[in-house]
Amino acid sequence: MEKGILPQIDQILNQVVLGTPLYKWALAVLIFLLFLFLRKLFTAIIINSIRAVVSRTKTTVDDKLLRVIESPLRFLFVVIGLWVVIDILGIQAEIAQHFIRSMFIILVFWIFYNSVNVFTDDVYKFTQKFGKELAKEVGSFLIKATKSFIVVIAFLAVLQEWGINVTALIASLGIGGLAIALAAKDTAANLFGGLTILADKSLKIGEWVKVGSVEGIVEDLGMRTTKIRTFEKSLVTVPNQYIANNPIENFSRRDVRRIKMTIGIVYDTPGETVKKIVEEIRQMLKEHPGISKEQTMLVFFDKFNDSSLDIFIYTFTNTANWKEYMAIKEDINLKIMEIVERNGSAFAYPSQSIYVEKLPHKLEFIKED
Rank of each mutant, 00 (worst) to 15 (best):
T146D: 07
M261I: 13
S307W: 09
A157Q: 01
R342N: 14
P247T: 12
L285T: 14
S49L: 14
W208A: 11
S49N: 12
A52I: 09
G193M: 09
Y113A: 14
I46G: 06
L82S: 07
I243T: 08
E137I: 11
K293E: 11
Y23Q: 03
Q97E: 07
L82Y: 03
V118N: 03
V236N: 00
Q352E: 13
N305Q: 14
L195Y: 04
E368K: 11
A189R: 07
V108Q: 00
A184S: 11
L107G: 04
G176I: 13
Y325P: 00
I47A: 02
E364W: 05
G139S: 03
T273D: 09
V214Q: 09
I228P: 08
L36V: 11
F75R: 06
T167W: 04
P270E: 08
L156G: 01
L107H: 08
G206S: 10
L173S: 13
D220Q: 05
L334G: 03
I105H: 01
I243Y: 04
V152N: 03
R67I: 04
S71K: 08
K147E: 09
W83Q: 02
L309Y: 05
I228N: 06
V29C: 11
R282A: 15
D10R: 07
P270K: 04
E161L: 07
R74C: 10
I243N: 06
A181L: 15
G90C: 04
D122F: 12
E215P: 09
E341T: 14
I95W: 10
S102P: 05
M103C: 05
